Amino acid sequence: MDDDFTLRPFRIEIPQAALDDLRERLVRTRWPSETEGQGWGRGVPVGYLKELAAYWADGYDWRAWESRLNAHPQFTTEIDGQDIHFLHVRSENADALPLILTHGWPGSVVEFLELIEPLARDFHLVIPSIPGFGFSGPPRGAGWNSQRIARAWAELMRRLGYERYGAQGGDFGGGISRALGLIAPQNVVAVHVNGGTTYPSAAEDDVTLTERERARVRRMHEFMAEAGGYLAIQSTRPQTLAYGLTDSPVGQLSWIVDKIRDMTDPAKELPHEAVDRDLLLTDVTLYWLTGTAGSSAALYYEDAQAWSEPEVSSVPTAVALFTVQDIALRRDEEKANNVVRWSDFERGGHFAAMEAPDLLVDDVRAFFTDYR
């Protein structure tokens, strides 16, 4: 790619008028009716969301979280015609291994806030916002699927002067990290994914499955039957969805909260019990302030349009699963990847960086020890 590039320092400075507009919209929300006694069975209950929206309007402090984000060096650069926003936190250990961390949906760079300080003791951290998400903003054109994003990440690491590095991610971030290993195997020393990169290929009644594996297959079928509608919508009609979520902060809040509850630790009944309430609202606020509801959803569309049978990766790979909310099976992961480490945790869920950062940090640190 072009060697004539610029890394531009970036600082988050949201105008007060945008925050005032957010509060006004929250206060003026037009609330829907609901079926008596429905609980969470038909989606997010009105009572729960009213309480959360009221706190978002009058209790939550964006400026405090803005300052927390701004405590870390941030930059933007243009790659393949697209602005890319990223955090770049260098370790005090000059010889530390560079590590690129990639979020998923409905996440953002906010996912990694609890990981930055402990991981920076051992790694130079690069934490980009996926095109269509956060301060990378909406893509300027079509075609930004996971493979293209991985190519952009390879270029980003080259621009930063990193010739040898690791990759970590969950959800879309796991797939992008895997794709980065396929695109730049001479540079990526190892890949760590939480949640896996495949869907179970076995049936629940397969006698060769362990009880834990059967529970994961069962969970996959339950999830697709009860909560998988968002996949169909975002894979086919992200633009139609965008109008409601971009115009209504409560619409954006409910869409994200619904998925957080569906995929977090099953031992936690409510979303804010699995993910800190203010951290959750910071993630939602970032979507709202950047107007990226539709462009982030479009990653599902782009990947659906570009789908092909994935290559087998030879890059050393670690897979960490958190409770039955991570539905991958070891046999499938080992067919697709060079799995050299397998971790299975009894706490946490699909959003491990926000739910169980301590477990994730320890697993990442332990895995990459042999590749530093």
Rank of each mutant, 00 (worst) to 15 (best):
A203E: 15
P266L: 05
D3T: 14
S177I: 03
R341N: 11
A18K: 10
S308G: 11
L97W: 02
D122H: 12
Y300L: 01
A71M: 11
V109F: 13
E51T: 13
D4I: 13
I256E: 04
Y48M: 06
G166L: 05
P98F: 13
D20Q: 15
K50D: 07
E334D: 06
R347H: 13
W153D: 03
N145C: 05
G228H: 01
V44T: 12
A232L: 11
V89N: 03
A274M: 08
R365S: 12
R23D: 08
A64G: 07
P185I: 12
Q305T: 07
E211P: 05
V217A: 01
D358Y: 00
I256Y: 04
K50P: 10
E311C: 07
F135N: 02
A64D: 03
T282M: 13
H124D: 08
S129L: 10
R216M: 12
P45A: 14
G251T: 05
R159L: 01
I79P: 09
L19M: 14
G132F: 10
R261T: 00
A356H: 07
D278W: 06
D247L: 03
A150D: 04
G173K: 06
Q168S: 11
P118F: 09
P32A: 11
L119H: 12
Q147N: 04
L52G: 02
A336N: 03
W144F: 13
A242S: 10
